[in-house]
């Protein structure tokens, strides 16, 4: 029976496609949370496969902090164009202008926390009943306990101690008005799986992931890119380095690593040899030991 076995990437792909189709069948108005990062790109690619030969039946939903890598926005727009799907943008700048949230101050200020309000407001405005994300359980310890189908109350909150049990592949997406779900089709993928899959499937990704020359400053043990949104300290020195990014978030807090990996093959080798988690370069996770859990409870991605 050796013939009838799947390799691990095929099995993960099959599982994720199954989840995407369950979302389509169980919800009225789902959307794919699209950050322009590799995980949401892989998720979008899987959605394409799940509904082929039909188009992806979901809009892409981008929470725009205003502090983007310009490359991310270009990539987003050309992908939306190519797939012929609708794009929904929730703007953090607008939430600030409307007085819904207050901008953080200080040297480590970021708009990371503010995204939650924009996310929840946009979900309500567009009556999205299921927001799919590319979060993975291997990323962070609070995420290790996340379900595929994760229920949110009408304040958008996650109650980690009172999650619905999830057995086999029987997903329960039932809810009352006002509640919504977060669904994570690539829960079981690791960073390595994602890179292997991008390589195997030849998926287009932003050049930021590949080693390139860039102006950066050394801050919080990582290379932070120089941009219009960053306040330089007196003692900080701008240098040019060959870097790549392992995750893409807000440009003000996403650190790069020095790297020579300028092809996908080399990235895979580098990931295999890495001794730091990919979120090790994300200042948002370093605020406290349980900062991800705390943000998730409030409704973060």
């Amino acid at each position: 029976m050796q013939k009838y076995t799947l390799k691990h990437l095929q099995e993960l792909e099959s599982e994720s496609i199954y989840v995407l189709r369950e979302v389509f069948a169980q919800f009225e108005n789902p959307a794919i949370l699209f950050s322009g990062g590799k995980d949401s790109i892989v998720l979008t690619h899987l959605a394409r496969k799940a509904f082929y030969p039909a188009k992806i039946p979901f809009p892409l939903f981008h929470v725009d902090t205003g502090h983007n890598f310009p490359e991310t926005i270009n990539f987003r727009d050309s992908l939306v164009d190519k797939l012929g799907v609708k794009l929904i943008v929730g703007s953090v700048q607008k939430s600030i202008d409307d007085g819904r949230v207050k901008e953080e101050r200080g040297i480590n200020a970021s708009r990371n926390q503010l995204q939650t309000t924009t996310l929840l407001d946009t979900i309500e405005e567009h009556q999205i009943d299921c927001a799919m994300g590319g979060a993975r359980r291997d990323e962070e310890k609070a995420r290790a306990k996340e379900r595929f189908f994760s229920h949110r109350d009408d304040f958008g909150q996650w109650d980690p101690k009172n999650q619905r049990p999830e057995l086999w592949n029987l997903f329960n997406g039932r809810k009352v008005m006002g509640e919504h779900f977060r669904v994570f089709p690539i829960s079981n993928w690791t960073e390595m799986d994602v890179w292997q899959y991008i390589l195997a499937e030849k998926i287009d990704i932003p050049g930021l992931y590949i080693a390139h020359e860039r102006e950066v400053v050394w801050r919080n043990d990582t290379w932070i890119p120089v941009s219009d949104y960053i306040n330089l300290r007196d003692d900080e020195e701008v240098v040019k380095k060959k870097v790549r990014f392992r995750t893409l978030g807000d440009i003000t807090i996403t650190g790069g690593v020095e790297s020579e990996a300028d092809t996908l093959e080399k990235i895979v080798e580098e990931v295999a040899a890495a001794r730091q988690t990919e979120r090790g370069n994300r200042a948002d996770d370093k605020r406290s030991e349980t900062s991800m859990e705390d943000r998730k409870k409030e409704g973060y991605f």
């Binding site: 691990h8 359980r137 291997d138 310890k141 306990k145 980690p160 079981n188 799986d193």
Partner: peptide, 14 residues
């Protein structure tokens, strides 16, 4: 309290 999922790989299996 809850089920947690962990991931690791060796050269032979994931």
């Amino acid at each position: 309290i809850d089920v947690a999922y962990r991931y690791f790989a060796t050269p032979k299996r994931k």
